[in-house]
């Protein structure tokens, strides 16, 4: 049964297992340092679809189907799906997953969705409400650009702090027993707003939320960063990662020697012209559902704090002069 520890942390006593996971990505992500670790790389980022939204739906469907297959199930055996994305009304999830016929709880946590859906799946499985659940999310560079920024062919210049929305999807099938990485705990994120208004510096908008969630989790569990092999944020990228380290240090937490960010891992920033690094729900989803789970499975990592980070703005809120609130959900991934 899930048990609350401290203020906002939930411990999963049955230690739900990630029975299967899949990460599928686009061409650019496939050319990045983690390229060989992904289950599928789509050279054609339209995935044969007529629109970018349909392409993202296909990406998400592919990730979910593969993860379910790798876990040794068929879709009808999955009790609940937890899915979300960045598009208005989460259409990549609802349209992409409609043909699977699995009850779907739509989730919105901006780019923190992978951590959020993993936590929800773990709560359902650990409480006995479900035997097997699937957590899935995606993002697509082209679909995000047209919703949040400019038309693709518009010749605009990016700032050094801007990030590259990943064309990627990740899915994890969570159940009880069996072999695989365990979900041991989760900590819910608060909406933290430090008044950042620059849409081209979302790392700065999200870093305070990530530092807040990490500090609350460590307080709730009475642990210190040294007890974890890796503290991994979702998509703070270069500017945000530096701010995260600074903010945690100010709280007396030393994370630098065991810290990384999925947005810095997905691309080679020197050669791939992504400026500050990767972002989007698919960024952390693809990195965690491939490289990180594999590293834990191989025994190179034991306990990983994955902190999914999201910027909760919309084009409307930005145009109305609102600041950008951040949110960060944490899950503890472990090999035992």
């Amino acid at each position: 049964m899930p048990e609350r520890k401290g203020q906002h942390t939930v411990l999963f006593s049955s230690r739900p297992t990630i029975l299967g996971a899949a990460a599928v990505v686009g061409k650019k992500e496939g050319e990045g340092p983690l390229g060989p670790q992904f289950d599928r790389v789509f050279e054609d980022t339209t995935l044969g679809a007529k629109t970018w939204e349909q392409a993202e739906s296909a990406l998400q469907r592919e990730a979910a189907t593969l993860a379910i297959q790798k876990a040794g199930f068929v879709p009808s055996q999955i009790h609940f799906l937890f899915a979300g994305d960045l598009l208005n009304q989460c259409i990549a999830s609802t349209f992409g997953l409609r043909e699977l016929g699995i009850p779907l709880f739509g989730q919105f946590g901006a780019c923190s969705t992978m951590a959020q859906t993993m936590a929800m799946a773990a709560v359902f499985v650990d409480s006995g409400a479900a035997d097997v659940c699937c957590a899935v999310t995606s993002s697509h560079f082209c679909a995000a650009e047209r919703q949040f920024r400019f038309p693709l062919e518009y010749g605009s210049q990016r700032t050094p702090t801007s990030q590259w929305t990943a064309t990627a999807a990740g899915a994890a099938v969570v159940g009880i027993g069996g072999k695989g990485v365990r979900l041991r705990a989760a900590c819910g994120g608060r909406v933290v707003d430090m008044g950042v208004t620059d849409v081209n510096n979302m790392g700065a908008a999200m870093a305070p939320a990530a530092a807040d969630t990490l500090a609350r989790f460590l307080t709730d569990t009475r642990t210190v960063p040294a007890e974890y092999d890796l503290i991994l944020t979702g998509d703070l990228s270069a500017a945000g990662a530096e701010l995260f380290c600074e903010l945690t240090q100010q709280r007396g937490l030393r994370v630098q020697d065991r810290y990384n960010d999925c947005g810095l891992m997905l691309y080679d920033r020197r050669t791939q012209d992504v400026h500050a690094g990767g972002s989007g729900c698919g960024c952390s989803a693809a990195v965690v559902c491939s490289h990180i789970l594999r590293e834990i499975g191989a025994g190179r990592l034991h306990r990983v704090l994955f902190i999914g980070t999201g910027a909760l703005m919309s084009p409307t809120s930005c145009q109305q002069g609102e600041s950008i609130p951040g949110i960060a959900h944490l899950v503890l991934l472990s090999d035992d």
Binding site: P160, T161, M194, G195, N201, A239, L243, L247, Q250
Partner: peptide, 17 residues
């Protein structure tokens, strides 16, 4: 840390164009 202090910190850490 106040919002103002954080915004100053973020501006300091922001790489210049």
């Amino acid at each position: 840390m106040t919002q103002r202090e954080y915004q100053k910190l973020a501006a300091r850490k922001r790489p210049a164009s």
